[in-house]
Nucleic acid binder design. Sequence first.
DNA 1: ACCCAGGTCATCA
DNA 2: TGATGACCTGGG
Length: 294
Amino acid sequence: MLKDFSVMNNEIQAKITEFDLEQTFECGQCFRWNKVYENGYLGVSRGRVLEIEQKSDRFIFRGTDRDTFENYWMDYLDLRRDYGEIIEKVSTEKNMIKATQYGNGIRILLQDEWEALVSFIISSNNNIKRIKKIVDGLCSIFGNPVEYKGHVIFAFPNPEDIYGSGCDDLGDIKCGYRAGYIIDAVEKVHLGEVDIGSIRKMNYQQGAKELMKIKGVGPKVADCVLLYGGAKYESYPVDVWVKRVTEALYLKKDSKPDEIKSIAREMWGDLAGFAQQYLFYYARENQLETGEVK
DNA sequence: ACCCAGGTCATCA
DNA sequence: TGATGACCTGGG
């Protein structure tokens, strides 16, 4: 975790343990951070740009100021949390020990709830590469441009930026049948039928119920939004990878999502979301079909 | 041509 | 409630 940081020459420097840019930004939880050079990533959240460079456990943050860093990015990057402690607590058996060693620099980002919602609507029955492409397309059409060191980055559009558009207006981003889902989300959030801004205050059940009012939002998408945007760390999103690996390691049989979620809750309690992320990253990066440790 | 990808929906019993 | 197909799109 981050203990303190220093500001000089418009740069913020800090030593942070259990943090790796590639693991955190490429583990499938977010879709808008891009590698711009070796060990350097550039991203935007809620219209704020940030450049991060990593040298082992030393980090340099650029494009921000002390106030924004302390009041926004510290929380976004979850830098106040002791992930050494998280890893220790979820490493309940040998496979999880392996998974947490493999992804020991993963942090769960606190993303904008609306961005997480739309991103994971797009994620359904889709692959990560194409999800990124579609999300980028949505931003370049509807988002506000932000300039940084010659890069033009488009912020993620707010509901009001998209409101008034129809499915046809989303044709260029090639999101297929998900266009209708996105429009439904835009309308319900914009008109106040869904209170996306309150999911962090709600409990897990309330949050899930609220999110699933939207077309295209089922249990898996709701779980992702609650975990990555709603800080509901007991959430255990069950996709094809997590299903495979959880069944193989713990259940030893074909199981329904609710059974998979409940055993995760038994093993890791309100830290199940962290466990899920380590397992997902480990299984997917190693293309594990059975979940067995190699 | 067929299958898959961080699933959900409509339909049917 | 629970099971079964269909589904935009692009890559292997």
